[in-house]
């Protein structure tokens, strides 16, 4: 039971990270029907910028409480990522809005390669450690353990998710976003400045990416210019699993993917009598994804018949 509980905690924390990154994918997709492949790299940039700030602060003012340093890191990383997101949208995607569908996909891949290599030129090829500035508290309940950082990740993810749903459902911007997602033409006829809405979407997604990037590097204790690729891929899978374009779907997909990976790696060996081990963790995850999509092609929470010409 304690093992089961521990795997549940592991899966929820991992899933929260996926969910936060998946939100960025799903928001952009909902509006533009574009897989923003570079989103994972924006996350990486957030982590790198924040780490640079925190690293400098830890050297200059070692007495400052860790939480304040983290806040300073966020305060710099978020605007940088937002600017980056806006720049990517403006340069790499907007001119291609009417191009064949695969063209923006290729620019997205190009942008991610560029961002990776720029990060490598700035911060080097090394893994960068996250300074031990955060409380290292560990709590045990029913044999399972959870750390302060893990609790913070869970709480923050839920809070951000709720805030985002509020923004989309209750504000003018949110209404404009929903309208644009339904039909760009009609929205613009109704007086919605579509370009601004799309830019705002990228800005919000990139800010979330910055937060997610810092979370990931604080949780695992390191950052690297290559870290965005796999994270982005997993988060994208999570978004599709939940039904891409749907905010709740991204959250659900992220959490599910985290749980599937945890329980998959934890139990697959026992379930198959040792024939398949934890090296088949990703096979297991993809298998669930494929099975879901085969039976529910629009994802778990996706709207039916979203086929648009």
């Amino acid at each position: 039971m304690d093992i089961f509980l521990q795997q549940l905690v592991n899966g929820l924390v991992l899933g929260s990270v996926y969910a936060l990154v998946a939100l960025g994918y799903t928001m952009v997709y909902g509006i533009l029907e574009l897989i923003n492949f570079a989103h994972g790299e924006v996350t990486m940039m957030g982590a790198m910028v924040a780490l640079a700030v925190i690293g400098a602060l830890a050297l200059a003012a070692p007495g400052v409480p860790g939480v304040l340093m983290l806040a300073a890191g966020l305060a710099v990383a978020i605007p940088v990522c937002v600017a980056l997101g806006l720049l990517i949208e403006r340069v790499a995607y907007r001119p291609l809005r009417h191009a064949p569908r695969l063209a923006p996909l290729i620019t997205a891949i190009g942008v991610s390669i560029i961002l990776q290599n720029v990060a490598m030129l700035i911060w080097g090829k090394q893994y960068i450690p996250f300074p031990a500035i955060l409380p290292q508290g560990r709590h045990t309940f029913y044999g399972a353990s959870i750390t302060d950082v893990q609790i913070a990740i869970l709480v923050l993810t839920v809070a951000i998710m709720l805030a985002l749903i509020l923004v989309v459902q209750k504000t003018r911007l949110g209404r404009a976003m929903r309208a644009t997602a339904q039909s760009r033409q009609v929205a613009s006829l109704m007086g919605v400045d579509v370009n601004r809405v799309i830019a705002a979407t990228f800005a919000i997604g990139s800010a979330l990416a910055a937060v997610a990037g810092i979370m990931v590097s604080a949780y695992y204790g390191l950052a690297h210019y290559y870290m965005g690729f796999l994270l982005g891929l997993k988060a994208f899978s999570a978004a599709v699993l939940g039904g891409i374009g749907n905010l709740g779907g991204a959250m659900l997909g992220g959490l599910l993917l985290g749980l599937i990976e945890s329980f998959g790696a934890g139990y697959i060996g026992d379930l198959t009598g040792g024939f398949l081990g934890s090296h088949y963790q990703d096979v297991f995850a993809f298998f669930v994804l494929i099975a879901v999509l085969v039976f529910r092609p629009q994802g778990l929470l996706g709207a039916r018949g979203v086929e648009r010409a």
Partner: peptide
């Protein structure tokens, strides 16, 4: 490429 080992470490535990 992995950074999360919680699941396998939990089974190991």
């Amino acid at each position: 490429r992995a950074t999360d080992f919680m699941a396998i470490l939990t089974s190991i535990k």
